[in-house]
């Protein structure tokens, strides 16, 4: 019976690994455009790509550890199940050198991950296109249960307070592609979180704070935008779209939006 249980635990690990292996080809992996035969979605922002890379690095380390520990676990279980009646139990209180090895090796690996990732975080929060350096395209204000978005008029910069010629949209965030842009994230009521899965970007919107978030979008199309922090019964309904278009189209869109917004119904009298 003991052998059965050794196999049982090993089998559970094999199934877990197998499931992860086939998951991408069944759509159970990163969202984003599928590239290559693997089936994994590719992030559509530069920071998202770096996040994915980091994820895969951790995944490899974790997978090796998982498979290794379960192989050993399976072995010791099997051995303990097949021990003969006359065989002696290993009477050991531990091993100093083993303890040293399995303290130093994991701490080295953990430190490596810790140091390696700092750069990506720094890129997201301080360096390169820190929110201050990227152009602020819009102020995004979350409220129960929608997103209100305010843009500066074409050719102007975003001011912290609303301006008479600002352009507004609801649940549609228009941004230009191909260059880093930033948004000022606010909330009018409770806490929310701005989350664009295909860009891998997430940031909480905190009452009383205005938080800059930068990103760049590499492909002009629409992306789903969701709320990731519980904000009440309608949390699951804060469905919105991030609409990325080329620079020219962005300008053209803004002109059109401004025209629609400020059109008061009076037509120029015909000649």
């Amino acid at each position: 019976m003991g052998r059965f249980w050794a196999v049982f635990f090993v089998a559970s690990a094999v199934i877990a690994v197998g499931l992860c292996w086939v998951a991408p080809s069944h759509g159970l992996w990163f969202p984003g455009t599928l590239k290559g035969g693997f089936g994994a979605g590719v992030a559509h922002s530069s920071i998202g790509k770096r996040i994915d890379d980091l994820f895969y690095l951790v995944l490899v380390i974790v997978a090796v550890t998982y498979i290794g520990t379960h192989a050993v676990l399976g072995y010791v279980l099997w051995r303990g199940a097949t021990i003969k009646a006359e065989e002696k139990v290993l009477f050991s209180h531990g091993s100093h050198s083993l303890e040293v090895i399995w303290t130093i090796v994991p701490s080295g690996i953990l430190l490596y991950i810790a140091l390696y990732q700092m750069d990506v975080w720094a890129a997201y929060r301080f360096k390169e296109f820190s929110p201050k350096k990227a152009e602020a395209v819009a102020e995004v204000t979350a409220r129960q249960f929608e997103w209100r978005i305010r843009y500066p008029a074409r050719g102007k910069t975003l001011m912290p307070t609303p301006q008479p010629d600002d352009v507004y949209t609801v649940n549609e965030l228009h941004v230009p592609t191909g260059r880093p842009v930033s948004i000022s994230l606010k909330t009018e009521d409770v806490q929310h979180a701005f989350f664009v899965p295909e860009l891998r970007i997430k940031q909480d919107a905190v009452p009383g704070l205005t938080i800059p978030v930068w990103f760049d979008v590499d492909e002009p199309r629409q992306y789903e935008m969701v709320c990731a922090e519980l904000c009440g019964w309608g949390h699951y309904k804060m469905k919105a779209r991030l609409i990325a278009v080329s620079d020219e189209d962005f300008g053209a869109w803004k002109d059109k939006a401004a025209l629609e917004q400020f059109d008061d119904g009076f037509k120029k009298p015909a000649e």
Partner: peptide, 20 residues
């Protein structure tokens, strides 16, 4: 995560060579 790892290795070490 380090002390957690150490504990895990020691549990496996405990099973190792025992009469289960």
């Amino acid at each position: 995560a380090l002390p957690s790892a150490i504990k895990t290795f020691n549990w496996i070490g405990t099973i190792w060579g025992g009469r289960l």
